[in-house]
């Protein structure tokens, strides 16, 4: 099991091979758990619920992962974020539903990170993103936080910030561009996906 690639494990899961799911759990639970505990602000019960749902989805909706479209871990994180935000919104009784991960997945062109270096890469990425975030203005940081981690929609954020929706939209655009520029600058020649 340990020597198998993520794609091979997914293949085995399609054939209802339980040890393959357990192997994927061992590989990614820390990432999923860390992500979920952040998005739930440290709520261990909700985090457990999210992790359970993520692995249930892995076990039941096997066909949605297509290796040709990108790296498995990004797909996994996209699912995790969707499930988390779905849960958060349900609990906060927000209106509107979260789009299927498939849709988002289809837009996604994942990173081609080196499998061997995954853990290292992850830590590196974390440092890079945190560094890049420092270049954002206070309102830009707040926007990214509300949007990405709290699951608010842009119009809800416009309401919270008491700003026109157009302002929030362009603030988002500026924020993402600034993140991207600082991110690329730091990584330099080893930019992912190229």
């Amino acid at each position: 099991m340990k020597s198998k690639s993520d794609e091979e494990l997914i293949e085995l899961i399609v054939q209802n091979h339980r040890p393959a799911l357990e192997e994927l759990y061992d590989r990614y639970v820390k990432l999923i758990y860390s992500f979920s505990i952040k998005i739930t602000k440290g709520d261990k019960e909700k985090t457990k619920e999210i992790v359970q749902q993520v692995f249930l989805r892995l076990w039941t909706t096997k066909s949605t992962y297509n290796p040709s479209q990108g790296q498995f871990v990004n797909w996994l994180l996209t699912i995790t974020r969707n499930i988390s935000i779905d849960l958060i919104r349900k609990e906060q009784k927000y209106k509107g539903t979260v789009q299927l991960e498939l849709e988002e997945w289809q837009q996604m062109q994942g990173l081609q990170a080196d499998d061997v270096q995954q853990q290292v890469t992850r830590n590196l990425l974390k440092q890079q993103i945190q560094e890049a975030k420092r270049h954002l203005s206070e309102p830009q940081q707040r926007l990214i936080n509300l949007l990405y981690w709290e699951g608010y929609s842009l119009s809800e954020i416009a309401e919270l910030e008491q700003k026109p929706l157009g302002t929030i939209k362009s603030r988002l655009h500026q924020a993402l561009k600034k993140l991207r520029n600082n991110f690329n600058g730091k990584i330099g020649g080893v930019r992912h996906g190229e």
Partner: peptide, 19 residues
């Protein structure tokens, strides 16, 4: 592509937590 990657990178902005 680059902005999409940036958006996805945000998910790595987490503290590693013991499971």
């Amino acid at each position: 592509k680059s902005i999409q990657e940036t958006w996805q990178m945000l998910s790595y902005d987490v503290e590693e937590t013991e499971v």
